[in-house]
Design a protein around this nucleic acid. Structure first.
Length: 342
DNA sequence: CACGCGTGGAC
DNA sequence: TGTCCAAGCGT
């Protein structure tokens, strides 16, 4: 069914005709390609581009990124999500600076061991920057391959993804980077999740699902789990000196981002005072309510003002709050506070 | 392996 | 206050 050389030729011809390569990839600058792949993880191209421009201006090379302050990096990453990505990227970049003379390794064995480099990013950087014959299997490629081979296995399973990667690597011609980008581009523009444009697909004659009229059934996905819901009271604690109490988020969710003190709705005022080491002398008004959806949970937050006279190291000048990295969830509430003249 | 991890856009 | 998903990775 699938004639390998003909398939690859048709795909590459289509790709070169459309010339939709991301502009920085044409430079073959391994650092730029790597940074962009990190940003593009689970993130749409249109969303990542302004962040990429900012980072490449502010941190144009390995050494400048390695030397950056972590909190400054988080602030620049603010709004992009999956905040561990930038921490992992800096850790990897520091490793490259210290052990490889600030030169991105042109060696898959070495590169794949770096923090935050998995099968996709490793394959993408090594193929696009150095033309190593390695597949870059992302969500687009999984979808394309499931249809091309009428493969009805669960594409989310790591074991299946491994075999898909091996399958793609049997198809890669000499121009590995272009081929990987072409396959992703096909998935992003033609072989889309909904309403795929099979009629203009350059490889439809090689597509088993198309021939069997089964494109709409593929890829097979299991339905998403329901998100668990959390209800919080969030406090704007003011000390009468134009300062507000903020805390650095701990744990795994939003680690390192600043947040307003947040408590389960049934937490008593006494517990809150004790936990924060302050004494509330006056309860202020209700700021409003905000909800926020994460990948696997939902937050429902009510905002309230509290007043204290206490001095406390975690109070921040109101004018400085904007310089700290803060999640979208907290920004939503904070904007309500600002709109009230807070 | 299954799950946790952000956010915004398209329906 | 819905669903799906996006150039995935760490644990």
């Amino acid at each position: 069914m699938l004639k390998t050389s003909e398939f690859s030729h048709n795909l590459l011809a289509w790709y070169h005709l459309n010339q939709r390569s991301l502009p920085w990839r044409k430079t073959r600058d391994p650092y730029k390609i790597w940074l962009s792949e990190v940003m593009l993880q689970q993130t749409q191209v249109i969303t990542a581009i302004p962040y990429f421009e900012k980072f490449i201006t502010k941190y144009p090379d390995i050494d400048s990124l390695a030397a950056a302050d972590e909190e400054a990096l988080l602030k620049d990453w603010e709004g992009l999500g999956y905040y561990n990505r930038i921490r992992n990227f800096q850790a990897a970049v520091k490793e490259v600076k210290e052990h490889y003379g600030s030169v991105v390794p042109d060696d898959p064995e070495v590169f794949f061991k770096l923090k935050g480099v998995g099968p996709y990013i490793g394959g993408a950087v090594q193929s696009i920057a150095f033309n190593h014959l390695i597949a870059a299997v992302d969500g687009n490629v999984l979808r394309v391959m499931s249809r091309l081979d009428a493969d009805d296995r669960e594409m989310t399973k790591p074991s299946v993804q491994k075999t898909v990667k091996e399958r793609v690597e049997t198809l890669i011609p000499l121009e590995a980077g272009d081929f990987n980008q072409a396959l992703m581009e096909l998935g992003a523009t033609i072989c889309t999740p909904r309403a795929p444009k099979c009629i203009i697909c350059p490889v439809r004659q090689h597509c088993e699902a198309y021939q069997e009229n089964r494109v709409s059934e593929l890829p097979v996905k299991k339905k998403a789990k329901k998100k668990s819901e959390y209800y919080y009271n969030v406090y704007f604690i003011l000390n009468g000196k134009n300062e507000i109490l903020l805390q650095k988020q701990e744990g795994t969710l939003l680690q390192g981002m600043y947040e307003l003190p947040r408590f389960d709705v049934d937490t008593s005022l006494e517990t809150i005072e004790e936990s924060l080491g302050i004494e509330v002398h006056h309860k202020g008004e209700h700021i409003g309510s905000v909800s926020h959806v994460f990948t696997h949970k939902k937050w429902f937050m009510e905002g309230y003002i509290l007043y204290t006279r206490d001095i406390h190291p975690e109070f921040i000048k109101l004018e400085d709050v904007g310089n700290l990295p803060m999640s979208r969830a907290m920004q939503k509430l904070y904007h309500l506070f600002e709109a009230m003249g807070g």
